[in-house]
Amino acid sequence: MRRKRIPGVDPKLLIRDAAKLRPDFARRSFLRGMASLGTLTFLTGCDVVDGFSAEKVLRKMSELNDGAQAWLFDPGQLAPEYPDSAITRPFPFNAYYPEEDAPEVDARDFKLEVGGLVDSKNSWTLDELYALPQEKQITRHICVEGWSAIGSWTGVRLSEFLRRVGADTRARYVWFQCAEGYSNTIDMATALHPQTQLSFRFDNEILPRKYGFPMKCRMPTKLGFKNPKHVVAVHVTNSDLGGYWENQGYNWHSGL
C-alpha cells in the first residue's frame, strides 16, 4: 500500500474543508511531514507509516478513548458554575468560517425539525421553544485548541425537550443539524445530563447570530466543537452519524 494518508483523517473531507486551524497550510504536505517525522523518530521506513498505517492504529486508539471517556462520564457530575463577574467579555467568536459568514436564520420562518426515535415529529417554532421552562448556566467553554472562556447561556434542558417530544432515551445518540451545514452526534448520556441545554440566550440577550442564533446546544461536559450552533434539526438515533470535525479526525466523545 502506498497510500499517502493522514492518520485519523479522511482525505476527501480534509481537502474539501477550509483549513480553519491552519488556513495558510497546504494540507497534503502534512502527511509528508508526518511520515518523515514518524520515520525519523521511531519507525524504520516510510512503508511502515504508510502501509502498516499509523492512521489505523491511531483511529483505533481514539475509539478506545471514546470508550474510556464514556466510562469516566458521571451523569451526576456537574461542570463548575461561575458568578456573573467571571464571564469573559467579549466572549470569543469561534468557527471554521469568519464571523461575517455566520448563517443568518430568519426567526419568522424558523422551525426546529425533530426526527428519529421520537413520538412527536412536529416541528417547533421559536415562540413554542421560548415558552419551555428555562434555566441559566454560567460555565466554562473549553476549546479543543486549548483556550477557554466563561459564558452565560439560558435555555431549556435538552432532557426536558426530549421528554416532551417522547424521545426513546434508550437510543444511543442525538444528532444535530445546523443551518450552515455543520453537524454532530453526541451520546445519550450527555444528552440527558442536567447541564446539556438548548440555549436561546447568551448573557441574558437573545442569542446573537455570532453565537448561534436561534439556538445552540450547550454542553459544558464536552469540548466547544461538540456544542453545535444554529441548530435546525434534532434527531434521536441508534446510528452514529458523525460530525463535521469528528469526521476529520477529532476525537468523537471529546468529553471534559
Binding site: 493522514i6 492518520p7 485519523g8 486551524l21 502534512f30 508526518m34 486508539m61 478513548n65
Partner: peptide, 14 residues
C-alpha cells in the same frame, strides 16, 4: 508530530 491539531491530539492521546 501530527501535522495539525487533530493529528497531534490522536498521537498524544494514544
Amino acid at each position: 508530530l501530527g501535522g495539525w491539531l487533530a493529528g497531534a491530539l490522536l498521537w498524544h492521546f494514544a
